[in-house]
Design a binder for these strands. Structure first.
Lengths: 330, 330
DNA sequence: CTGAAAGCGCTAACAA
DNA sequence: TTGTTAGCGCTTTCAG
């Protein structure tokens, strides 16, 4: 069986550039130009080519494009856990932004492992134009080595020599603390997330400066929140800044089961503004920089890097979202 | 400036097969074999090649691979909304399964638009080995045309001539209804999701058969649930089967605000078993076929199709997860 | 503005 | 078992 040659193709292959060129009566190169640099082609030819493209329902082959031109029209988004709604929203926002640019998003979930994180970066680097790395916990050296020439942008972790988009974590803590103080709480604790997180460490530093006691670390989940209830009660604080909304919800749930009055004996502020925050009762007061914004800005930043434009760190100011059923005057 | 030739490369390019071959003192084809069919290479050569691969930190170029061999080691997962925790979990499970197979997952979010759904399938088809299409709402003809030769698997919607993995929706409804009946409810309503969903239509049909009244359709969200409260109260039912957990939570939230006793005046059963279900108070009783299972099975199915193995529809039986704080005897 | 030719990095016959 | 030889479908110089 001939596989190539004049006899015909066997490859399942869909229509190619060559097919379009033939149909339009021009050279393949012209079709290529019509696609990527329309202004280099005469209006008449352009029209003809476009007609053929539609007629044949031609879709350019990404692999060939990449191989020949270097560009993939693909960016990778690497997150610790897609099933976490925060990252879900972030990924979605990134995807929307990328789509505006006719780009595809390749997703990798690291399951929170530094090992897998580096592996993901390495294996993706050659196949995408840029990488958005979220909630990274791996050593920066390794990440940079793994990324090679591929533009890398970090979200929610500040890294040297890697453009980052982060929340101002000190402000996150301050906002939450001030809010609790304004309600009259003077004994306040910060429940830490995993130590590997940049956000944990940055907030902890601020907490220490501010003389706020810290509890934990706990897992950044509902279960983590539940597990810290005893410590919270023992510590005698009345106001709690939880690492994130999941921890806050877990803490509140456990408190409810133990009959601890909320708000009253305990006021809790979360962080992330998950949709969840509005659904639980009492609703959660939360400090936030929206996942959407982070995702969008990150993609813009990779684009800048891809195009060789300078890309500076973006530090987003958090908002305090008050739902006023959780945190109440003592 | 020479771009190619003996002078040296300018392309940022990382190490290639050829580099490894040179380093190991073998032909490029041998390295290729060492990578994809190790058993075709002598142990000694294999070892040497592997050493070189490590030494040079070689990572194969996916695009070249695809172009030459036809395989991409990539599958696409298309969902209506990644930020929905149900799909988040599904995507994560799919991703894990794919990773076991050294595959990458390309993600597309259609924002629930049939238009974008078809576009996503079309643009992805040539660049992936297979497609997992979740919660599809587009016309089957168009989808099949868009997919071309690329294996397609549908999740949560049964399609003719497309292997599908779905929940037994009649069973979903029956389970929920039986549960409510066993608690003594005899006036029960089903709150419908969007009509475009296969799961809505299938359940509705069953509801009609079973003489259960239907309400809605509503958006498959918290807001959708809130919006249907009046209709629920007006209809005089005491038991409600909500389209999914988000709707259920919205309904419960609105009920709580209106002082409707739950459980008591109203018992609600959701569907999906979102993590959320355990976090709200009262906790949600829910009918489920886990998102994880759906994701995993779907990926297995695409793999089967990719390998040319026969792939039959998988109909998963739902489970009833009873948390017993929501649905209680009348 | 358009055609010709070369080649991106890899795999897959085919020979040896 | 290994080397040789062709391309995969596209972009890109370079001429014309």
């Amino acid at each position: 069986m001939r596989v190539n040659g004049t006899v015909g193709r066997v490859t399942a292959g869909s229509t190619t550039l060559a097919d379009v060129a033939r149909h339009a009566g021009v050279h393949a190169a012209t079709v290529s130009r019509a696609l990527s640099r329309p202004q280099m082609v005469s209006a008449a030819t352009l029209a003809r080519v476009r007609t053929s493209i539609d007629a044949l329902a031609y879709v350019p082959n990404g692999a060939a494009r990449q191989l020949a031109g270097g560009r993939t029209s693909r960016i990778a988004v690497i997150v610790p856990d897609v099933s976490n709604p925060f990252f879900g929203a972030l990924v979605q926002a990134a995807q929307r932004r990328a789509t505006d640019d006719d780009e595809l998003v390749v997703l990798a979930d690291t399951d929170q492992g530094p090992q897998r994180e580096v592996a993901a970066v390495r294996s993706l680097a050659a196949d995408v134009d840029g990488i958005v790395l979220c909630g990274s916990v791996a050593p920066v050296r390794e990440l940079r080595a793994a990324a090679g020439e591929t533009p890398l942008v970090s979200v929610n972790r500040r890294m040297r020599a890697v453009p980052s988009v982060v929340l101002d974590q000190a402000a996150v803590l301050d906002l939450a603390v001030d809010h609790l103080r304004s309600l009259g709480h003077d004994r306040i604790a910060f429940v830490r997330g995993p130590s590997a997180y940049w956000s944990t460490e940055t907030r902890t530093r601020r907490a220490v400066e501010a003389g706020i006691r810290t509890l934990g670390p706990v897992e950044p989940t509902d279960a983590g929140g539940r597990s810290v209830l005893d410590a919270v009660l023992d510590s005698g604080v009345s106001g709690v800044v939880a690492f994130n909304d999941l921890v806050a919800v877990g803490l509140l749930g456990a408190a409810a089961e133990r009959g601890v009055p909320v708000p009253g004996r305990l006021s809790v502020v979360g962080s992330d503004d998950l949709p969840l925050a509005t659904l639980v009762r009492p609703a959660l007061t939360t400090v936030t920089g929206s996942a959407q914004t982070l995702g969008r800005v990150a993609v813009d930043l990779v684009h800048a890097r891809i195009d060789g434009r300078p890309a500076e760190d973006v530090v987003l100011a958090p908002d305090l979202v008050i739902r006023d059923t959780t945190a109440a005057p003592v």
